[in-house]
Structure formats: C-alpha cells, structure tokens
C-alpha cells in the first residue's frame, strides 16, 4: 500500500526551543561553518518566530513542505535530481546528481532548499560523530529535508529482516519529530485515516502554508488562534503581515491567553 508521509505541527505547542533544528542537523550530518549566516547556513528544519504585532507570538517550524502536486522543485530540476517518491510521498533530493544550478531554490515558495556554499568541514576529529546512515554533501549542491529518509530505510530493513512487508510506524520517526519536547510535531501516513496526522489535518484548526498556490503540501499546521491560521496566506485585503521576533511589550497589562 502506498503511504503519503506528512506532518501536522501544532503551533500552539511549539515554544520555539529549537531542539528540532539541532537534532535535524545532527541526524543529517549538516556542518556548522564559521562563516554561515541565516542566509547561507543549512537548516533543513528552520523555526520562524512570528508575531501578531501585539502580544501574540508563534513559532513556525518549517521543514520541506513535501508538495504533492505540481511540486515546484521536481518540475524545474533539469536533470532529475529531485523526484517525488510515489510510494511514500517524500520529495527526494539526490545531491549526487545535482549540478547546483539553484533553479529549484528560486522555484520553492517556502525557501526550504539550501545550497552548500562551502565545502563541508568539521574540526579535527569531529567527523567521527557523523551519522553513518547519511552521506555528507559536498559544496555546490542543493539539499533539503527528505523526512530523514535514512530512518525510513532502516525501518524497511528492519521490517524485511522480520519478514514483514509493512514497517512499524514507531520505527520510522524523523529526528525533528523525535526531538520535540512538547510533541508539537506529529508525523505519520496521511493515507491512513486513523493516523494522528490524518485526523489533525482534517480539523478546522488545520491549515497549510500558501495552499492556494495549488502545490498540495503535506505539512499541515494547526492552531486555535485565528491570527496564526491567517499566516497561511498573504492577505489581499489587509496590510501585509510583518515578521517580528518576540519583543518586550511596554505597559503593565495582564494578558488573557
């Protein structure tokens, strides 16, 4: 049976601690390079702080949105270095085939793709801590979140050893999902109607970012706060939303949450 792996991220639970970002980088052998900035660093999982301009604060963890339809990056790659795996719904990046033209990065509306501006490097000896399941990417290629595909492989191997066709859901959990201290990131098969993600994706609190573009992302977000749900789209009618980090608010007010 085909799976469609997706996530449902509860934005009312995400406190923006950043554990997912570090766990992701560790799992995927992402280097920390001294010159990298927020515009050149590689953060396959990236948490965006947002605010409603008053006292409302939210953090939006953004992995690759795993677009299902008209997948922008898959469509534009000239040499099939990106493909949508129909068996899992995962948009796979193959850095070995990438020539680094970065067309996919301009195509992605979510900025979920990252270019290796430098050769990966670790302080002497630290390469011993690299995860053996994931190959290191060289400079000049694009990479992104592939839902910890190595973990899926490991789960499939485990199932095959046990003579089973299907993997155990508990055996395949991406690093960010595993690391979340509040359980805000839920992961599973959207095709399985009984799964937690599938259920969450059907609630009225669920939304997807820029869904009107028609790319059918498989990362859902949920929030009980209307202003957070409104972040899904740009607003043709109102002022453009402005990004803001949490800041000190003046005055002696009590906020009713």
């Amino acid at each position: 049976m085909k799976a469609r792996y997706g996530m449902a991220i509860d934005l009312d639970r995400c406190t923006g601690c950043g554990a997912c970002m570090v766990a992701c980088a560790s799992e995927n052998n992402v280097p920390r390079l001294p010159k990298a900035t927020e515009r050149t660093g590689i953060t396959p999982m990236l948490v965006h702080p947002v605010s409603d301009g008053k006292t409302g604060v939210a953090f939006i963890p953004m992995p690759c949105m795993q677009c299902e339809d008209e997948t922008p990056c898959v469509k534009v790659c000239p040499q099939q270095a990106v493909e949508l795996d129909r068996a899992t719904g995962i948009v796979m990046q193959m850095p070995q085939r990438c020539l680094g033209c970065r067309y996919c990065m301009t195509a992605c509306p979510y900025h979920s793709r990252y270019f290796n501006w430098w050769d990966p490097a670790w302080p002497a000896g630290m390469e011993r801590t690299l995860n053996p399941g994931v190959a290191v990417r060289m400079r000049g290629v694009v990479e992104k979140c592939n839902m910890c595909h190595a973990r899926l492989h490991a789960a499939e191997d485990k199932a095959a050893e046990a003579g089973k066709r299907q993997i155990e859901a508990a055996d395949y959990v991406p690093a960010c999902v595993e690391s979340c201290p509040t359980g805000a990131i839920r992961f599973g098969d959207l095709n399985d109607g009984a799964s937690e993600v599938a259920k969450a994706s059907r609630t009225p609190e669920a939304f997807r970012l820029l869904a009107r573009l028609g790319t059918e992302p498989k990362i859902y977000y949920t929030s009980k706060r209307a202003w957070v749900r409104a972040l899904a789209e740009r607003h043709p009618a109102g002022e453009p939303s402005q990004p803001a980090a949490p800041v000190a608010a003046g005055g002696g007010e009590v906020k009713h949450g």
Binding site: G16, G18, M21, V22, A25, S26, V30, R32, A36, T37, E38, T40, G41, I42, T43, L46, V47, H48, P49, F59, W122, P123, M126, A245
Partner: peptide
C-alpha cells in the same frame, strides 16, 4: 556550546 547550536543563534532568527 555544541557547534550545531549555531543553527539557533547564527543561521536563523530563532534566538
């Protein structure tokens, strides 16, 4: 701090 903490401090606006 662990080198990868830079993801939070330098390579994003998170902290």
């Amino acid at each position: 701090l662990p080198p990868l903490a830079a993801k939070l401090y330098r390579e994003s606006d998170l902290r």
